[in-house]
Design a protein around this nucleic acid. Structure first.
Ligand code: MN
Ligand code: MN
Ligand code: ZN
Ligand code: ZN
Lengths: 136, 136
DNA sequence: AAATATTTTGCAACGCGGTTGCATGTAAGT
DNA sequence: ACTTACATGCAACCGCGTTGCAAAATATTT
């Protein structure tokens, strides 16, 4: 059975060509993608709105996660077993100021910080900007 | 001499009532503010565009810095001696999911991380979301 | 294989955040 | 006071993202 269809089924989603193409794009390009990137990659095939809705659905079902950025949101594949119930993303994101790519550093977890009394942390987002190995 | 005027002069900016009011709003409310927050606070006094331009100018001159957010950008006062030449912001930002406020934790610097070979880091942005002391 | 129920898509329209051009108004230096 | 450089308001515009609704596609049942 097709790998893409299997992933979609695994997250309780109907297989549609748009979903397959969006998922496939995330897999082949490995960096974080904005809606505009996808629109560029998938061209005239799908309506803008459909891509927005696909991203929203993928977010909810735990297929992708948001990546914070100082200019516009991006999305990246969830590597591990995220689902509708649990998203876990304490890894670092790196944005290259030269090529503009943003990537997940899946192996690097965000270091713990000692917050002042009264703060109850739940989510962590660490974005490091600089130059990536390719542009070095 | 007025404190506000002095700050503006110090960053080589002309004193205008809009700039004074925006700066004053940042000082009295202590949390990070969005453009919308300022529009709400300053009401009918100024055009939206003027507020946008004031924020842009303050950013460039080192009076405020951007604060990352999972939904829309915010801005906060630069505490130390930022200028046109140097912005230094390695402190942590905390966003409360209850009251919605985002604050600078100026005393908490972002812990160093060991990046893989080839990555040259320049900027760090750490956003922690959770519950703040007030909403605890 | 056909019929049905349910979800997904495309289209049009809209709202919001942010930018630009240009004429007018204002601050600062002389 | 006069001049110059900068700041503001207004109008128009663009891009991102959302919503409502009818048509199309998918999954399920017969
Ligand atoms: Mn990631
Ligand atoms: Mn800050
Ligand atoms: Zn790069
Ligand atoms: Zn709070």
């Amino acid at each position: 059975m097709d790998q893409l269809k299997e992933t979609l089924k695994g997250h309780h989603l109907r297989t549609t060509t748009c979903r397959e193409d969006v998922l496939s794009t995330f897999i082949t390009k490995k960096n974080a993608l904005s809606h505009g990137d996808l629109e560029g990659a998938l061209g005239e095939n799908y309506d803008r709105v459909t891509i927005y809705r696909t991203l929203k659905t993928f977010l909810e079902k735990g297929i992708i996660h948001k990546v914070l950025d100082d200019e516009g949101l991006r999305y990246a594949l969830c590597s591990h077993n995220c689902s509708e119930e649990q998203h876990q993303h304490d890894h670092i994101h790196f944005k290259c100021n030269a090529c503009g790519e943003t990537n997940c550093l899946e192996n690097l977890s965000i270091p713990a910080v000692q917050l002042p009394a009264g703060y109850k942390p739940q989510n962590f987002n660490l974005l490091i900007q600089g130059t990536c190995p390719k542009c070095n």
